Amino acid sequence: MIRRPLIAFPLVYLGWAYLFWVPVLLSESSVWAFPNLIWFLLGGASPIVAGLGLAAVAGGKDQLRDLWQRLTDWRRIPGRWWLVLLFFWLVFDLAMAGVARLLGIAGEPLNTNWLLFVDPGPLLFLFVLSFVFPAVEEVGLRGFYLEALLQRYSPIVAGLVNGAVWAIWHAPFVWFPGYYANTTFNPELYWWMPMIICHTLLIVYVYNCTQRSILAVLIFHAMMNFTGEWLRISPAMYPFMLTGNLALAMLLVMFWKTGRQSSRNTC
């Protein structure tokens, strides 16, 4: 298994998570209540367990040092890409809301929470969901597993595999009691799973264009979460949002198919 990280990572990543999440899924208490919170956090550590564990065993200190550098070195990210990381999802969500309103799909696509920035409690909770959890995810899922996939496969194949594994990991969140109680997000598997795969293809592009930066994909992921919850996207919007994500993913696949991105740093 150590010599085959493409197989070892999903086995450890999913196996560790589901081992601890089964008691939560069988419980009728909120995921945020004790002891469910403990089981949830232990299972949620699976990206770190799989990523750092396999990196330590397979590559030792050198590979762990490489992960740390890619997580902390902000200089890997070109200046123009900071704008993309911080504002892409804001522009995308506002554009999708405008189109949805013009087409009559949602009369009130957004209910922006301006009071969020003056209420420290909900802001702290949203900060944890938006930034801390993605930090745990991205180190292993992208820093280790996506890197291993890209060394063997094209960006398209690597993104699809990485996204499918990520989607399977997220599937139980739909059934965790009370997980989304303090948010406006209420996912359904039929649109959320393919959306996660589309997001992964975008993350692969960001990763390749920022010199394999884990920090870049972490910020990109976190801003997606934060922007959506701050804007309070209407639940009726999310199936329509999948359309926009599919369109972006298809454009990206066409770009890769043309061979214009012949290397990781050609964007």
Rank of each mutant, 00 (worst) to 15 (best):
F176L: 15
G59S: 05
F255C: 01
R3Q: 14
L52H: 06
G228Q: 06
L90C: 05
S46M: 08
D119I: 01
T243Q: 01
Q63Y: 04
M1A: 14
S27I: 06
F9Q: 03
W32E: 12
S46V: 09
V157S: 09
A55H: 04
L189A: 13
P235V: 11
S262D: 13
P23E: 04
A50I: 11
V24T: 15
F173N: 12
L123Y: 04
Q151A: 08
V132T: 03
L67M: 01
L14F: 12
L231H: 08
R232G: 12
V161L: 08
G53S: 08
T266V: 13
A58I: 09
R260G: 12
S262M: 04
I48L: 15
S46Y: 08
P5Q: 00
W169I: 07
M241I: 02
H221Q: 04
E108M: 13
A55F: 07
P239C: 03
L246S: 00
V165G: 09
L54T: 01
A17N: 08
I38T: 15
M237F: 02
Y180G: 10
I105M: 03
S213E: 13
K61E: 09
W21I: 05
L146E: 09
W82R: 06
P172Q: 07
L14A: 10
G159V: 03
W166Y: 11
W192V: 00
L124C: 00
R260N: 10
G53I: 07
H170P: 11
L19C: 14
R232S: 14
M254T: 13
L90W: 06
Y205G: 01
L129W: 10
R152V: 14
F20S: 13
M195S: 07
F226Y: 11
I156H: 09
A97L: 03
F240K: 00
G178M: 10
L251K: 00
A97D: 04
M241K: 00
E28G: 06
F117Q: 09
L19Q: 08
M96H: 01
M224R: 05
S29C: 01
A167R: 03
L126V: 07
R76N: 11
V157A: 14
A33S: 10
I196V: 15
A249P: 01
Q151S: 09
E108L: 14
P120M: 04
V132Q: 03
A17I: 05
D62M: 00
E147I: 02
Q151R: 12
R70A: 02
Q151V: 03
L67H: 00
L52G: 04
L231K: 06
H221D: 04
W21D: 05
W191F: 09
L218V: 02
P187R: 02
R4M: 09
N265D: 12
P155C: 10
G107K: 11
F255G: 06
L150P: 11
A158P: 12
A167F: 03
L37Q: 11
G244S: 07
S234M: 04
V31G: 05
